Amino acid sequence: MENDSTKTEVFSWIKSLLAVVVLVIVCRQFLFTPVTVNGGSMSPTFQDNDRVMVLKMSEIEHFDMIVFEAPTSSDKHIKRVIGMAGDTLKVMNDRLYINDALVEEPYLEENKASSPFALTEDFEVVVPEDCLFVMGDNRLSSGDSRLYGFVPKDNVFGEVKIRFYPLSGIGLPE
Rank of each mutant, 00 (worst) to 15 (best):
residue 48 D to P: 01
residue 14 I to N: 15
residue 75 D to Y: 01
residue 43 S to N: 07
residue 103 V to K: 13
residue 105 E to W: 10
residue 3 N to Y: 13
residue 111 N to V: 00
residue 34 P to N: 10
residue 92 M to R: 14
residue 81 V to R: 05
residue 46 F to N: 08
residue 121 E to K: 13
residue 99 N to E: 07
residue 13 W to S: 15
residue 37 V to S: 03
residue 78 I to C: 10
residue 12 S to W: 00
residue 93 N to T: 07
residue 66 I to T: 08
residue 123 F to C: 12
residue 61 E to D: 14
residue 30 F to N: 01
residue 73 S to E: 04
residue 122 D to F: 07
residue 59 E to K: 10
residue 21 V to H: 11
residue 98 I to D: 03
residue 44 P to V: 00
residue 43 S to I: 05
residue 62 H to K: 13
residue 10 V to D: 05
residue 112 K to H: 14
residue 64 D to P: 08
residue 35 V to C: 01
residue 86 G to W: 05
residue 117 F to P: 01
residue 41 S to N: 12
residue 75 D to P: 02
residue 53 M to T: 10
residue 96 L to P: 10
residue 70 A to C: 07
residue 38 N to R: 14
residue 55 L to Q: 12
residue 30 F to A: 09
residue 9 E to H: 00
residue 20 V to P: 10
residue 63 F to M: 03
residue 91 V to F: 09
residue 123 F to Y: 13
residue 99 N to Q: 10
residue 107 Y to G: 07
residue 103 V to Y: 04
residue 52 V to F: 02
residue 46 F to R: 02
residue 4 D to G: 08
residue 6 T to H: 02
residue 53 M to S: 06
residue 8 T to D: 03
residue 96 L to Y: 06
residue 92 M to Y: 06
residue 103 V to I: 15
residue 99 N to R: 03
residue 71 P to H: 06
residue 30 F to M: 08
residue 107 Y to Q: 08
residue 36 T to F: 08
residue 80 R to K: 14
residue 74 S to Q: 03
residue 108 L to C: 02
residue 98 I to F: 08
residue 81 V to S: 01
residue 16 S to Y: 00
residue 55 L to R: 03
residue 79 K to S: 02
residue 34 P to G: 05
residue 10 V to L: 11
residue 2 E to T: 14
residue 33 T to H: 12
residue 47 Q to G: 15
residue 109 E to K: 15
residue 108 L to V: 04
residue 109 E to G: 10
residue 52 V to G: 01
residue 67 V to C: 07
residue 114 S to H: 13
residue 75 D to V: 04
residue 123 F to K: 07
residue 8 T to N: 12
residue 84 M to K: 14
residue 13 W to M: 12
residue 37 V to P: 03
residue 41 S to I: 10
residue 5 S to D: 09
residue 58 S to N: 12
residue 74 S to R: 00
residue 28 R to T: 12
residue 114 S to Y: 09
residue 99 N to W: 09
residue 16 S to N: 12
residue 72 T to A: 11
residue 27 C to M: 14
residue 106 P to Y: 06
residue 69 E to I: 14
residue 86 G to S: 11
residue 70 A to F: 04
residue 43 S to F: 02
residue 40 G to N: 06
residue 102 L to Y: 06
residue 39 G to M: 09
residue 28 R to Y: 02
residue 106 P to C: 12
residue 25 I to F: 12
residue 45 T to H: 02
residue 127 V to S: 04
residue 20 V to H: 03
residue 45 T to G: 04
residue 90 K to A: 14
residue 114 S to E: 11
residue 100 D to E: 15
residue 58 S to I: 09
residue 119 L to Y: 12
residue 29 Q to Y: 09
residue 4 D to K: 05
residue 99 N to K: 06
residue 58 S to Y: 12
residue 99 N to D: 15
residue 108 L to M: 11
residue 98 I to Q: 02
